[in-house]
Amino acid sequence: MTRDRGSDPSRRTGRTLITGTGTGTDADTDTRPGPGPAPGPGRRLLLRAAGGMGAGLLLGACAAEGLRTAGAPATGLPSTFGSPGALGAVGGPGPSGASGTPGAPGAPGSLSSPPPPAPQSGADATYTGDLRLVALSAALEHQAVGVYAAALTTLRTGRLGSVPAALESFLTKAMAQHADHATAWNGVLTGAGRSPLTGVPLSNQREVASALEHAGHVSDVAKLALQLEEQAAQTCLFAAFEVKDPAGARTAATVAPVEAMHVAVLRLLLGRPPVPDALLPVDRAAGPTLLTV
C-alpha cells in the first residue's frame, strides 16, 4: 500500500488546495498514522478548529473497542440521545429518496429517536456471517444520516459561528446519499430473508453524539463528518472484499467509491490533501462487533 503523503507537494510544502486564514495548530493536522505534515505557515485549514475535542481518535478507538468487546452491549442508545434540544431537534428536510427509510431524520435511528428495538429471538433479526457486515454498513449509514441531520440543525442555529455554504451543501447531499445507501443495504438484508436494520445499534453512538454535542466550531463538525465518512468508506470496501452474497458485494462495490468521494471533498474543505492514498486502505474500517444487534 502506498500512502502518497510525504511526496505530496501540498503536504511537503505545507500548502493545501484550499486554505483558510490564520495559523495552523495541532488540531489542524491529519490524525492519520504515518509521517505528519511539515509544519509551516501555509498549513491552514479552511475550517478552523476552535478547540480540540479529540474526535480524531474517537471512532478508531470505538471501533477497536467494538473489536475487543465479546458481546453486544446490553444498552441501546444512551439516554442523552433522547434529550430534546440537546443537539437541536433532529429534523429538517429529509433526504431525497429517503422517505420511510429507517434511520432517516425523524425516523427510528436518528439521534433523537428512542433506542432501537432489541433483537428478536428468531433468526430473522440476527445478522451473522456476511450479513453482519451488511448490517454494520447499514447501521453506519443510519448513524451518518442522524449525525448530519443534527449537525445541520446545530449549524443553522449559528451557535458554531458562520457556516460555510460548501459545508452545508456537503452535509445535505451526503445525508441524502447515506439514506439511499441504507435503503440499499437493507434491501440486501431483506433479500436474504432478514429484517431490515433499524436505528443505530452501534456501540460508539454515545461517543459520536457527544462529539457533536460538544463541537465548538464548524470545523469540529467537519472533522467528525470526516471520521464517519472514512469509517463508512473503508467498512464498505472491506465488505466488498468479504461479502460473498452477490447483491451485498455489488452494493458494497458501488457504495464504497461514493463514500470515498465524500472523504475527498471533506478533506479538501478541511485543507488536507484530498486523496492521500494510492489505494484505499481498510485500517479505519469498523469492526463487526461494533454492531450491537
Partner: peptide, 21 residues
C-alpha cells in the same frame, strides 16, 4: 489561499454526483 467563507455551495456537493458508482 482562498477565502473559505466565500466558497460557493456547489463546491461542497459537486464532488459526488451519483449515489452509487
Amino acid at each position: 489561499p482562498t477565502d473559505a467563507a466565500g466558497l460557493p455551495a456547489s463546491v461542497g456537493d459537486a464532488g459526488f454526483p451519483e449515489t452509487f458508482c
